[in-house]
């Protein structure tokens, strides 16, 4: 929680009423107060990975809670968003500290990015990516 406060400015109240479970290299968040006493594969949504030196928030968790970020968050323009959604890296001059950042477009949190020395690297998991030529409709028609 401390990480979400210090890195993104998301107050710990945002997580009140949720339960956290740690299993292997992952932390899970669940809104279910007391699930029945069973053998579970997973409980709730994967919240962060504790595998690396720096704990990494998941795209799923950022989509749910990242909207409250007050720092290390960036809103992309249509072309930048396309690249990010395709899982590509891009040069970007932004007021961000090096490390994981909340990436948004048109008010939607797209997911987790890694910012380092002027480069934004998309951290979207493969199944959540989309190549720009496949994007349906006019999501990217001009600026908002």
């Amino acid at each position: 929680m401390e990480l979400w406060r210090s890195r993104f400015g998301i107050p710990s109240e945002a997580f009140e009423g949720y339960a956290f479970h740690r299993r292997g290299h992952n932390v899970w968040i669940s809104s279910s107060a007391e699930p029945p006493d069973l053998r579970y594969e997973t409980i709730g949504v994967r919240f962060m990975s504790t595998k690396g030196k720096v704990w990494k928030p998941t795209t799923s968790a950022l989509q749910l809670f990242g909207g409250r970020a007050t720092k290390n968050a960036i809103d992309l323009d249509p072309d930048q968003a396309k690249m990010f959604l395709a899982g590509e890296s891009q040069n970007l001059d932004a007021d961000l500290e090096n490390g994981y950042v909340v990436v948004s477009y048109r008010g939607m949190v797209l997911g987790c990015g890694l910012y380092s020395r002027g480069e934004l690297v998309s951290q979207l998991p493969k199944e959540r990516r989309i190549m720009s030529d496949k994007i349906e409709n006019g999501s990217f028609k001009g600026d908002r």
């Binding site: 279910s32 107060a33 699930p35 029945p36 594969e41 997973t42 709730g44 949504v45 799923s60």
Partner: peptide
């Protein structure tokens, strides 16, 4: 709480990924 049961191990990933994408935080998978 919603317990989502699925016996087929190869069908668990689709179940999990839909729950995560849709933000279903009260679901536990068995």
């Amino acid at each position: 709480s919603v317990v989502a049961n699925e016996p087929a191990v190869n069908r668990i990933p689709s179940l999990r990924s839909n729950c995560e994408r849709l933000g279903a935080m009260n679901v536990a998978v068995t």
